[in-house]
Amino acid sequence: TETYETTDETEARKIAEELKRRGLTFRIERHGTTIRIESD
């Protein structure tokens, strides 16, 4: 499991693209301005 936290929408998108490219599944949670991406 890898966890990323960012407040930057663009960075979050880049992380999501990278995880997809590596064939990982992940979920995105939003907590206020923080975007949390957690891979399975």
Rank of each mutant, 00 (worst) to 15 (best):
R36N: 02
I28K: 02
K14T: 08
S39M: 13
I37P: 00
T34N: 05
E11L: 11
I28A: 02
E2R: 11
T3N: 06
T3S: 10
E2G: 07
I37H: 00
K20H: 10
K20R: 12
S39C: 15
R36C: 10
E2F: 15
R21M: 07
K20T: 13
E9V: 08
T6W: 01
K20S: 10
Y4H: 03
S39Q: 06
G32K: 03
K14V: 08
E18Y: 11
E18C: 15
E11Q: 08
T34E: 03
E2A: 09
G32W: 02
R36H: 07
E2I: 14
R27K: 11
I37M: 01
D40C: 15
E18N: 09
G32N: 04
E2Q: 11
R13T: 09
L24E: 05
D8E: 04
G32H: 02
I35M: 02
K14Y: 08
F26E: 15
T25F: 10
E18R: 07
E18F: 10
T34W: 07
T34Q: 05
T10W: 10
S39R: 06
Y4W: 13
G23W: 01
E17P: 00
A12H: 01
T34P: 00
I35A: 00
L24N: 03
E11H: 07
G23T: 00
E9P: 13
L24Q: 05
R22G: 02
T3P: 03
H31S: 09
R30A: 05
R13Y: 11
E29I: 14
G23K: 04
K14L: 12
T1L: 11
E38F: 15
T34L: 13
L19M: 06
T33A: 13
A16L: 13
A12G: 03
E17D: 11
E17M: 10
K20A: 11
R21W: 04
D8K: 03
R30H: 09
T3M: 11
H31G: 03
H31M: 11
I15N: 01
T7C: 14
Y4F: 07
E2K: 09
T3R: 11
L24G: 02
T6Q: 01
R36I: 10
K14P: 01
R27Q: 09
F26P: 15
I28N: 02
F26A: 12
Y4D: 00
T33K: 12
T33R: 10
A16W: 09
I35H: 01
I15R: 03
I28S: 03
R13G: 07
T25L: 10
K14C: 15
E5S: 07
T3I: 14
R27M: 07
I35D: 00
R13P: 01
I35G: 00
G23P: 00
I37S: 00
L24T: 03
H31T: 10
F26C: 15
D40M: 14
H31Q: 10
T3Y: 14
T33S: 12
R30E: 05
I37E: 00
F26V: 15
T34S: 06
S39P: 08
D8G: 02
R22E: 02
S39L: 15
A12L: 04
T34V: 13
E5Q: 06
H31V: 12
E17N: 09
Y4M: 02
E38C: 15
D8M: 03
E2S: 08
E9F: 07
T34R: 06
E29Y: 14
T33M: 11
T34F: 07
E2L: 14
A16Y: 07
E11I: 11
A16I: 15
A16S: 07
G23F: 02
A12M: 05
R21Y: 04
E5M: 08
E29D: 06
I37L: 04
T6M: 04
E17T: 08
T6S: 03
F26L: 05
E5H: 06
S39Y: 14
S39I: 15
L19P: 00
T7F: 06
I28P: 02
I28Y: 05
E17F: 08
I37C: 00
T7R: 06
D40G: 12
Y4E: 01
T10D: 14
E11K: 06
A12W: 03
E18M: 13
H31L: 11
T7H: 07
R22M: 06
R13Q: 12
S39F: 14
I28H: 02
E9S: 05
G23V: 01
S39A: 14
A12E: 01
I15T: 02
A16N: 01
E18A: 09
R27V: 13
K14G: 06
D40W: 15
R36M: 06
L24P: 06
E18D: 13
T25R: 14
R27T: 14
R21D: 04
T25G: 12
T6V: 10
E11T: 09
I28W: 08
G32F: 02
R13V: 09
D40S: 12
E11V: 11
R36T: 06
D40T: 14
R22C: 14
G32V: 01
R36S: 03
A16K: 05
F26R: 04
R30L: 13
K20Q: 10
R30F: 13
T3A: 09
T10P: 03
T6K: 01
I28C: 15
T1K: 14
R21F: 05
I15S: 01
L19W: 06
I28D: 03
L19K: 00
D40R: 12
A16R: 04
R22Y: 03
T34Y: 08
F26Q: 07
T25M: 09
T1V: 12
L24H: 09
T7E: 12
R30Q: 08
G23R: 03
A12K: 01
T1D: 06
I15K: 04
